[in-house]
C-alpha cells in the first residue's frame, strides 16, 4: 500500500470540488443527480484509469441513482475518490462496494444537510440580509451572498477532504453521536430563530378601535396655548418627551392591536403560523394557503379589520 501507482493530487480533488457545484445541473426524475455525479468524477476517472474499458466502466458506475443534500455530496465524493484510487491501484473493490458506500451515505447525510443548511443557516442568513434590504440597504444582499458562499465553500472542501482521508471509516462516524448532535443542535438553534422571526416579521395589525377616552386636561398638549414660532415647537417636544410625557391628542384611542400587544406581542402572528402548520399537515398545498392569505388580507382590509 505504501507505493501507489496513481494517486489523486490536491489539484485533482479541487477539480472535483469545482465540478460538484454543477451537481444538480441535469437533475432528472429518473436518477436525480446522477449526471452531476459522473460530471464531478470525470477528472478523477481520467487520472486513475487509462484504458477505455476501465473508463467506460467507471463512468457507468457513477451514472446510477444519486440524491442527497448538495453540500453533503462532497464528503461522499471524498470517500468515493479514496475507494476509486485504491481500486485503480489494484485493491479488490467491486462496483457493489462503491455503490453501497454512496447509497449508504446519501440518506443519512441528507438528513443532516437539510436541517442544518436549508432550515437553519439559510433562513438565518437570509433573514439578516432581508432585514437590511427592506430599507434599501445594498449590504443586505451582499452580506448574505458573501457569507453564505464562504461557508458553502468551506463545508464542501473540508467535507470532501475529510471523506477522502477517512475513507470508509466515515460511515462509522456518521452513525455515531457527533453528526446526530450537530443535527439536533441545528434544529434547536433553528427553532429558536424561527420563533424570533415570526415575532418580528409576520405583520398583522388589527385596526378596529375598541375604546376612545377623553383625557384629563393635564394629560395632553394644548396646542392652542403654546407660544408661537419655534419656541412653540420646542415647548411641544418638551411636553411630549418622546412619548413619555403628555399625549398629542385629547383622546386616548385603544385599538384591538394595542390590547393584543399588551397581552402577548405577536400572538396573532403565532396563531396564524400554527394555523398554517395545521393546514400543511392536512396536505393543503402551500400555494393554496399563500393565495388564501392574500385573499383574506384584501377582504379583511375592505371590511376595515386589518
Amino acid at each position: 500500500m505504501a507505493d501507489k501507482k496513481v494517486t489523486l493530487s490536491k489539484s485533482d480533488r479541487r477539480k472535483v470540488l469545482l465540478r460538484s457545484y454543477f451537481l444538480l445541473a441535469s437533475f432528472n426524475y429518473e436518477r436525480m443527480q446522477n449526471g452531476g455525479v459522473v460530471f464531478s468524477m470525470i477528472p478523477a476517472i481520467k487520472k486513475l484509469y487509462k484504458n477505455k474499458e476501465d473508463r467506460a466502466a467507471a463512468l457507468k458506475r457513477h451514472l446510477e441513482f444519486f440524491n442527497t443534500h448538495p453540500f453533503m455530496a462532497n464528503p461522499i465524493f471524498g470517500v468515493t475518490l479514496a475507494l476509486e484510487e485504491d481500486r485503480a491501484n489494484g485493491a479488490q473493490i467491486d462496483d457493489a462496494a462503491i455503490s453501497g458506500v454512496k447509497v449508504g451515505m446519501m440518506g443519512p447525510l441528507a438528513g443532516v444537510g437539510d436541517p442544518v443548511f436549508w432550515f437553519t443557516m439559510r433562513p438565518i442568513l437570509a433573514a439578516m440580509g432581508a432585514a437590511l434590504a427592506v430599507s434599501g440597504n445594498v449590504l443586505g444582499p451582499i452580506l448574505f451572498y458573501v457569507i453564505w458562499n464562504i461557508m458553502a465553500w468551506a463545508v464542501k472542501w473540508y467535507g470532501q477532504e475529510f471523506g477522502y482521508r477517512a475513507g470508509t471509516k466515515i460511515t462509522d462516524d456518521a452513525s455515531g453521536g457527533l453528526l446526530q448532535k450537530v443535527t439536533r443542535g441545528a434544529s434547536m438553534m433553528g427553532m429558536f430563530v424561527i420563533g424570533a422571526l415570526i415575532q418580528r416579521w409576520v405583520t398583522i395589525n388589527f385596526t378596529p378601535v375598541i375604546s376612545k377616552v377623553k383625557l384629563q386636561s393635564a394629560q395632553y398638549i394644548h396646542w392652542d396655548k403654546l407660544p408661537s414660532g419655534i419656541n412653540g415647537v420646542k415647548e411641544a417636544l418638551l411636553q411630549y418627551n418622546l412619548g413619555n410625557g403628555k399625549a398629542l391628542t385629547p383622546y386616548k384611542e385603544t385599538t384591538l392591536q394595542s390590547n393584543l400587544d399588551q397581552l402577548i406581542p405577536g400572538l396573532a402572528a403565532l396563531l396564524l403560523t400554527f394555523l398554517c402548520m395545521w393546514l400543511l399537515k392536512k396536505k393543503v398545498s402551500p400555494i393554496v394557503i399563500i393565495i388564501g392569505i392574500f385573499v383574506v388580507g384584501v377582504l379583511a382590509h375592505v371590511a376595515g379589520l386589518l
Binding site: 416579521w201 409576520v202 403560523t273 388580507g297
Partner: peptide, 13 residues
C-alpha cells in the same frame, strides 16, 4: 397586508 402575513406559511413549512 396579505404580504405581511403570508410570511407565516414559509415558517410553518
Amino acid at each position: 397586508i396579505g404580504g405581511g402575513m403570508v410570511v407565516a406559511v414559509g415558517y410553518a413549512m
